[in-house]
């Protein structure tokens, strides 16, 4: 047993790649949930993004167009959910589950012609001196552009929610939609935009999987990543920066156990995989128990149906 064989540097670098799809999906779902909508269809939106991005990238030869198409495609798919829950007042939990089923099926149908193809490869950041630095180089300066984008996106969401007026309105809608409505905010419009933002991010996460991390298209390739994204939002207690921590922790557990095995350490895989979820529950309990910090907790209107009575 030789733990020193595990290089922390390359472990961190791999971990970032493994965590990026769930990070992207989670930051989108965070915005959706902050507006008071619980969309359980992340898995369906992710895989739909994975195939939309894959098709676009293969057909045009441009990964960038692939990512744009993935965001657009999944946003369009999430619009179905938005219509159901916002206009037709359907239950969010049930609609989200239906969205997952629909997305998985539709993606597989579209992808039928696209198995066994290699997508165009995505460029990596290659800064003359920086990328070659020991330790810092591989961790910070030698990734594909999407990793940097995902972190910028988190920063953007954080700034938006914390410092902009629109962000404030979005949070208000999520906390108390009736009050927000009374103040004249367009609750439904804001929520639809938040849902579509969530869809677009999930699509990017899916496309990251099919274009960079694996990279190929296979049916069912998200293999539950969307559900993990949902857990990460809770783990992060709806705080953008903690999404990064959560995603790297959840992604890291898998990477770590695979690496431990590779150096010959005998580990109980299932019990280790359970750990992040247990930690999430503990985090949730701590956040909830402390009533003074109630504002940090789940958006108060999460999952509730809004209908303007006047």
């Amino acid at each position: 047993m030789d733990f020193s064989a595990i290089s922390v540097v390359s472990l961190l670098a791999t971990l970032m790649v493994a965590a990026t799809p769930i990070l992207l999906a989670a930051i989108g779902e965070l915005v959706t949930e902050k507006s008071g909508v619980l969309n359980l269809g992340v898995e369906g939106m992710m895989i739909f993004g994975a195939i939309c991005g894959f098709i676009a990238a293969v057909e045009t030869g441009s990964p960038l167009i692939g990512f744009i198409a993935a965001a657009a495609g999944s946003a369009a798919l999430s619009f179905l959910f938005a219509i159901l829950t916002q206009y037709l007042l359907a239950n969010q939990v049930a609609s989200g589950l239906a969205l997952t089923l629909f997305g998985l099926g539709l993606a597989a149908l579209l992808g039928h012609q696209y198995t066994g193809i290699k997508p165009p490869s995505s460029p990596k950041l290659d800064l003359p001196i920086l990328s070659d630095l020991p330790v810092v180089g591989p961790i910070l300066f030698n990734h594909d552009y999407m990793i940097y984008f995902s972190i910028l996106l988190v920063a953007g969401v954080w700034y938006f929610l914390k410092f902009t007026r629109k962000g404030l309105v979005l949070r208000a809608v999520g906390e108390n939609h009736d009050a927000a409505h009374a103040l004249g905010y367009k609750v439904i419009r804001i929520r639809i935009l938040a849902i579509m933002f969530g869809g677009a991010c999930a699509g990017l996460g899916g496309a990251y999987l099919s274009l960079i991390r694996v990279p190929q298209w296979t049916e069912g390739m998200t293999a539950g990543a969307g559900w993990i994204a949902l857990a990460i939002v809770v783990f992060a207690s709806w705080k953008p920066w903690r999404i990064i921590l959560g995603a790297y922790l959840f992604g890291g557990v898998t990477i770590l156990q695979l690496n431990l095995q590779a150096v010959g350490v005998d580990i109980p895989v299932s019990y280790l995989s359970m750990a992040p979820y247990l930690v999430t529950i503990i985090v949730l309990v701590i956040m909830s128990a402390d009533r003074k910090r109630a504002s940090l907790n789940a958006p108060a209107s999460l999952g509730r149906i809004f209908h303007a009575s006047n």
Binding site: L38, V93, W227, S273, Y277, L278, I281, V285, S288, A289
Partner: peptide
């Protein structure tokens, strides 16, 4: 229990416990 004692959202706790149960089954 977590809802009653700590006011933890049961939607999220029960969802998290699905993953725990699944890994328990695998184990």
């Amino acid at each position: 229990y977590l809802k009653i004692k700590f006011n933890a959202n049961e939607i999220l706790v029960s969802l998290m416990l699905v993953y725990v149960a699944f890994n328990f089954l695998a184990g």
